[in-house]
């Protein structure tokens, strides 16, 4: 019982939302809503995250991108004041990283995007998040789960940025077909991510 209890508490401490910060939106300088910008306004992920197709890092938009609309819309609102302050002073808006991978892991957005892994596969329904939070714990088992069997999670390249994408009933056939077509390798060497 002692051992069982210890393991149970350890498991909960290790996997619980409190430890992994899943579903907990950190406080940001501006309560930015992906729900509003993506779902209500229909703005594509790439409008702001311009680097996601070509670089390892998806890219956080510069203040200029915010000002493209907010120089005219909500241009007197208190909530958007930090944008105008940043624009006037040239100082960065200090956003808090939501997906903070451990430093011993190498990750590259562009290769995933270009091989048919959709944004929502890892980031969840960002279009339904009034405040941004993580839906996956980013543990190694979670990464490896897909690296061992990409056919289960792959989608057609044309659907990568479709946040409402649902896997079709014939994913068991389509998946392996896409894996072959896109030359997806099931990379599970340690050095793939720990380089």
């Amino acid at each position: 019982m002692l051992l069982g209890g210890t393991l149970a508490v350890a498991y909960i401490t290790d996997r619980g939302d409190w430890t992994t910060s899943i579903r907990m939106a950190p406080e940001q300088p501006i309560p930015f809503s992906h729900k509003h910008h993506v779902k209500d306004d229909g703005i594509d992920c790439r409008y702001c995250h311009t680097g996601v197709e070509t670089s390892g890092y998806a890219g956080l938009p510069p203040t200029e991108t915010c000002m493209t609309c907010h120089s005219q819309i909500w241009s007197n609102a208190t909530l958007t004041q930090p944008i105008r302050d940043s624009w006037a002073s040239g100082k960065s808006i200090e956003w808090v990283r939501v997906h903070d991978l451990p430093d011993f892991v190498y990750f590259n957005h562009s290769i995933h995007i270009n091989k048919g892994i959709g944004c929502s596969t890892c980031h969840g329904r960002v279009d339904e998040m009034p405040l941004t939070y993580r839906v996956n714990n980013l543990y190694m088992e979670w990464c490896v789960n897909c690296h061992r069997n990409p056919a289960k999670y792959i989608r057609p390249k044309s659907e990568v940025f479709n946040i409402e994408y649902q896997y079709p009933a014939n994913q068991a056939e389509l998946g392996p077909q896409l894996v072959k077509e896109y030359h997806v390798q099931s990379l599970t060497d340690c050095v793939t991510c720990h380089r």
Binding site: L2, G5, T6, V9, A10, T19, P102, F104
Partner: peptide, 17 residues
């Protein structure tokens, strides 16, 4: 003992992270 053991099983150091 259970609590101490559980904390021992979940690492606390973040140097590598």
């Amino acid at each position: 003992v259970v609590l101490a053991g559980a904390l021992g099983l979940t690492a606390c150091r973040q140097d590598m992270h």
